[in-house]
Design a protein around this nucleic acid. Structure first.
Lengths: 140, 140
DNA sequence: GCGTATAGTTAGTTAGGCTAACTAATTAAA
DNA sequence: TTTAATTAGTTAGCCTAACTAACTATACGC
């Protein structure tokens, strides 16, 4: 006998791989993976961030950020600039990076919509809110 | 400008690592990881399965199933028995495995509840349904 | 009976994280 | 003012949890 909580997490986990694979196939054209895309989107939405800020926002460790940024710098989508002191570095999108992000966003849109086909806007919003609440509960 | 679909998937992805880490900490006592736990739960809920069935249910490939099962056999939580012909093997819980699954389920319950604290039962059910719909849309 | 299909395994690769231990720069304290 | 502790980022090496390609053994269709 599963509780509704357990059922929810069951379903949550089950969806992960198929979803990530779907996204990664779409991102292949841009030589990106979903983790790198997540960082690009963060920079687009909220502007330049330090490595530590990125780690905090994405709930990953600093060395993982280093690797993500290295790859995106290689691709020319982001660049690092001096921060408030000599230790700090700010990561920001390049001009090309900004273009690419918009292009990818447009490219991914139909895939997202199809994945959520038949689900009402209201339910999507509720589900999003539920996920946000869990995030807040877990990372307290 | 993010659409509500993109916002949803954003939030979905953001939650994954913290959630899996939380579960894995709880499962550490039983020398299990969340992927192995997912398989144990499948066997508990729906009885014995062949390797191919497991692969289909969990949306993973056969070699991944082999590895999962090997580990769980080592731990004595599952066993394989002859199937309908000489090729097929059925994976099923051992007596000890069944006990452990129930113990873990009870152990995880408060963690799950706390993660969903402040979320109404109705919203949890809606979110679960949304995830199930996406799964169906993606794996069509 | 022979070619094809199916069940499972083995070997090797990958994404995407992690920790431990490090350097360089800054801040606090003696 | 020197010294200790903290902070930002990097490097090296590890792990989970998947993947593909290629294999063996068995079963099925014609």
């Amino acid at each position: 006998m599963l509780t509704i909580e357990q059922e929810f997490f069951n379903q949550y986990r089950l969806m992960y791989r198929p979803f990530i694979n779907l996204i990664n196939v779409q991102l292949g054209k841009y030589q990106l993976y979903s983790s790198q895309w997540a960082l690009l989107r963060l920079l687009m939405d909220k502007g330049p961030h330090t490595f530590v800020d990125i780690a905090n926002f994405m709930f990953i460790e600093k060395p993982s950020v280093t690797r993500l940024v290295q790859k995106l710098v290689e691709l020319g989508y982001v660049e690092t600039v001096a921060g408030r002191d000599k230790r700090e570095k700010l990561v920001q999108l390049t001009a090309n990076g900004e273009e690419i992000v918009q292009e990818i966003q447009a490219h991914l849109k139909p895939t997202m919509e199809q994945a959520l086909a038949g689900v009402s806007e209201r339910d999507i919003e509720i589900a999003t809110q539920v996920l946000a609440n869990i995030c807040a509960n877990i990372n307290r």
